[in-house]
Design a protein around this nucleic acid. Sequence first.
RNA 1: GGCUCCGUAGUUCAACGGAUAGAACAAGAGUUUCCUAAACUUUAGAUACAGGUUCGAUUCCUGUCGGAGCUACCA
Length: 592
Amino acid sequence: METLEQILSKSVTNFLSERYGLSDLKLEFQATPKDFEGDITLVLFPFLKLTRQNPSVLGSEIGAFLKDHSAQILKYNVVSGFLNMSVSDRYYLNFLDGFLGFKDYGHTPPNDDSPTIMVEFSSPNTNKPLHLGHVRNNLLGHSISKILEANGNHVIKTQIINDRGIHICKSMLAWHYFGEGETPESSGLKGDQLVGKYYVLFETKYREQIADMVSGGKSQEEAEKSAPFLLEAQQMLRKWENNDPEVRNLWTLMNQWVYDGFESTYKSLGVDFDSYYYESQTYLLGKSIIKDGLNKGVFYTKEDGSVWVDLNDDGLDEKLLLRSDGTAVYMTQDIGTANQRIVDYPLVKGMVYTVGNEQDYHFKVLFMVLKKLGYSWADSLFHLSYGMVDLPSGKMKSREGTVVDADDLIEQMKNTAGRIAAENGKIEGLEEHERVILFQKIGLGALKYFILKVDPKKRILFDPEASVDFNGNTGPFIQYTYARIQSLIQKVEGELELHLDLSLVDKEKEILKHLSTYPALVKTAGEQYSPALVANYLYELVKMFNSFYQNVSVFGSKDQKLKSLRLLLCKAVANNIESASGLLGIDLPDRM
RNA sequence: GGCUCCGUAGUUCAACGGAUAGAACAAGAGUUUCCUAAACUUUAGAUACAGGUUCGAUUCCUGUCGGAGCUACCA
């Protein structure tokens, strides 16, 4: 369906071309601000010089033309450089009629010809449980996947799991010495929590050794490097690399505990994946690609045999790709993994990496190198870079115990949801299992909205004391609005019919105007990789709806046609809340 | 030091270069014989500083001040 902007654009473009001989114009429309009369505004400033005309004359010309030639425009007025136009109720009623014909109005579902995009997110280490930073990562990655799908892309959700390295060996070593055979079953702990416990234990014991060595006369630096626990962990890593059966078995066992734990957290968060990559399988990839690049002359070798890429011409510096001993670095592995994904999924045309902004430089380099290597897909790579989640005390540091654990946080959110529901007397008549589901929806809705409403690029300040709000600009507010509408809709008897010859009150029109911007919003959110835009849109919508609900009686209307119109409007809002919430991964309750 | 990002009400967030900078929380004042008060209505309160570009700057450029990150033959 053509939008109002598109319809008017054509008309205005024709007019300006015939009257002033202008072409290739970019018209700028915006919603008319509240204090002015009108619904849609055309900004005239850009044409003043071109037409050598003053704004009031030009505005009147365009306004009069549209009034005569477009059925949608009833009136106009010109204020400084702005042409404000009033749009007919009929137009909005027609729009509502069209809107109700779609399940997800404004979304473009992918078809056979749609491109495939791979979205990477989560990508945890397997030595400790997920924390608040991962929560932001997961919610962003999941939401952006939904948004890309709504923009007509097939999406493959993937992650690269860091399942090897010294950190995992630390957990393994501590468990080996102090675990006494403890398992998730025997301890009742989630697997990732259990493994994380031993990672912390390793650090504690390691620090103790260092302290002993320092009081024995060694320097801090020396002690840190040569504490027996560390040496032993390093030894374990070498054994792992040499496929030592005992080490490999323990590694497999403990990693599986962690994966089971992660899965349960993902399930709570409502995120899922279509594919998994493991560093233990990819860390050797990329070396041969580097060698190809050497042959092509894209890279160069230094005297010690290490391989580098020179990015000085691109405003960066030189970057190492292979160590002098021929082993890979992180970059090498990422090059190999990217290539491997295209091998595994030949249809993939683009990749999105959901990774914190501390790695901005890394991805800049990675994308440049892949481009230099001449991959056809190298132009459609995107680093979805997001800001860190900070606590009032500063950065989260696992060593100092200042991380906010994901499982704890989720649990706390559910409990708060339950407490508030009880305080508001909303839980009567609900079975226990209904309550569990409801509190889960609301608690997670609050958390997801809290995180996703912020521009991904910006850092988030999270105060565990102040916690997440349940009133105002929050997830529960949106859910509450939806539940209110459901309760209205349940009262409807018989068929609802939309009559197009009604007149709208301001609050109705306001909502319809907002709904009509949804398709463009979805598109922009996809282009900018920003769930925050969706969240803000959604908030505006429910705020408008609640104002309407409180000030306009739906069932109070004597006029049957008017009642139908209002109920259909409610239905449209509910549909739209559902669509937009879906993009954020927020579930909606039918009552709360 | 070099590079990158960020400074908006007391606090947390908004604002394709467009009209009088919007919300929420917190603070103040109201609204339940009326479809769910997790709501609605309403008062007060902000663009770090100094220049520049522009018809127009929170937005773009320069500088100052303040904060964060990157700057490993770690991952």
